[in-house]
Design a binder for these strands. Structure first.
Lengths: 150, 150
DNA sequence: CAGAAACGTTGGCTTCACCAACGTTGGTGG
DNA sequence: CCACCAACGTTGGTGAAGCCAACGTTTCTG
């Protein structure tokens, strides 16, 4: 989809939802290219990042914090346990829950992936000045707060 | 993914690629909700919009302009011809090509979908002033130009 | 005129986002 | 106390979207 990039229809090109979609798609390509080196995907990173930041949590909690469906958390946690990055243990205080915790390898991987993500941001935002990056971040944050804080 | 929206990890919440992803995801939800009334999806709209704007075109051309893979254009055009919104005819000037043209019904549908899209933009950008909307549009446009003009 | 390139098409793959349903466990109101 | 409802993990499935490889046909080029 790259090489020859003729004019998209103006009707699309100037539409914010289209711009968001395309920018996110492009960011996604950069991100997954970065993650490929770790042999992990987006869901895995979100979970590792959440655990690295806030410590052990139940799967439902992780799902809420990472905007991942409960059922998808199951599969991703399975992957992560399979790689020894995470441990799943029943919560003694509430037997409905599993407590997910980072292993040391998992904490390491979380760090490495965070580095990768940081590098990608620089790549992604290359054309923008630091003030503009802040602008963009603020605008997007307000958009999201409005549409989810409700 | 909605109701309770506790704090996402700050490590994600402040990351531009995450913000883009989330904002685009949300925009996508609004857009597909709007398109559902037309019983069409994103690819269909892109193609109709391109045809409405620039007239008949080959499938490869449409794919390039709409950022849709050639193989996906085939399927989407199949759908659209099935609904009588579009006509596929061999190009007499180049027998490798098909020329895709809007029917009248297709032109009408393109208009209606454009209206839907416009309404969604208002919804999406509700929290932003008109100056801020321009800001956002400009920033995203520059991002895309940088990353595709190359 | 031979080889490279473009086109349409088939068939397949992966990621992400969702949904419905089930059995289990925990909390609550009558 | 117990019936009921909510939350949790899990299974299995759906669909949109973005890709890629390969093939036969047609066109362009060296």
């Amino acid at each position: 989809m790259d090489a020859t990039a003729p004019q998209s229809p103006a009707g699309l090109r100037t539409t914010p939802s289209w711009l968001l979609n395309q920018a996110a798609t492009h960011a996604g390509r950069l991100i997954s290219a970065g993650f490929a080196a770790h042999d992990l995907r987006g869901y895995h990173y979100r979970l590792l990042a959440a655990l690295a930041e806030s410590g052990p949590a139940s799967q439902a909690d992780l799902g809420r914090r990472c905007a991942i469906d409960r059922s998808d958390v199951v599969a991703a946690v399975n992957d992560l346990t399979g790689r020894g990055l995470v441990v799943r243990a029943p919560d003694p205080a509430d037997r409905r829950r599993n407590v997910i915790s980072l292993t040391e390898a998992g904490a390491d991987e979380a760090h490495r992936m965070a580095d990768t993500v940081a590098r990608v941001q620089d790549d992604l935002l290359a054309p923008l000045s630091s003030a503009e990056r802040d602008q963009l971040t603020r605008l997007l944050t307000r958009l999201l707060e409005h549409h989810s804080g409700h």
